[in-house]
């Protein structure tokens, strides 16, 4: 675990600035994807909080996992996550990412996302409504401002543990060992 270190003035400004401009990469293979168009567009409009969708992993700050992940998609998510530039954050949306949700006895979906990727914020629900999504994003923004969203540091420091968990379920491992 990472100890809470005292930040200097530049880090505080840095955190404040990055909390105000978050680019969101949505991994939309789960059913949570359907809640995101209203979140993005005029009805709920997440852009008023400084959050906008990003086109590619390399330009994104947040990886939003919208529901269940099968073994095959987990592999792509890990690849996408490692391509993102730090600081980077992961949001687990929906109960499937928390404890498997309705796929708890499926042979092909993972049950706990935080074994494989460092999750900064969980948004519970099946499915969470756009209000909850925006609530979670605001909460993440607060945590970043306070300098506590350190999932990506945790991932780098405990890479061995994460890799061991990932390799346990991904039987056909063909990802590079280090790609960030």
């Amino acid at each position: 675990m990472i100890e809470k270190k005292k930040r200097n003035i530049f880090q505080i400004i840095d955190d404040w600035a990055s909390a105000r401009s978050l680019w969101l990469l949505m991994y939309c293979t789960g059913c949570g994807a359907i809640e995101l168009p209203p979140t993005m567009t005029s009805r709920y409009d997440m852009e008023r909080f400084g959050i906008a969708p990003a086109g590619t992993p390399r330009q994104a700050d947040i990886l939003l996992i919208t529901g269940y992940l099968s073994i095959k998609t987990l592999k792509r998510v890990i690849r996408a996550y490692e391509q993102m530039q730090s600081p980077k954050y992961v949001i687990g949306l929906g109960s499937c990412t928390i404890n498997g949700g309705m796929y708890w006895d499926s042979y092909n979906t993972i049950k706990m996302l935080d074994l494989y990727l460092p999750v900064d914020i969980w948004i519970a629900g099946c499915m969470p409504r756009p209000e909850s999504v925006i609530g979670g994003l605001n909460k993440l923004s607060d945590i970043i401002k306070a300098g506590e969203a350190n999932g990506w540091k945790k991932y780098n420091e405990n890479l061995k543990w994460y890799r061991a968990n990932q390799k346990k379920v991904i039987k056909k491992w063909d990802l590079p060992e280090f790609n960030y």
Binding site: I98, N99, D105, S106, Y107, K111, M112, K168, V169
Partner: peptide, 14 residues
């Protein structure tokens, strides 16, 4: 094929 048995062997539950 017992999915629950397979899941208990291969995945961790919260």
């Amino acid at each position: 094929f017992d999915t629950l048995e397979f899941v208990n062997d291969n995945y961790m539950f919260r």
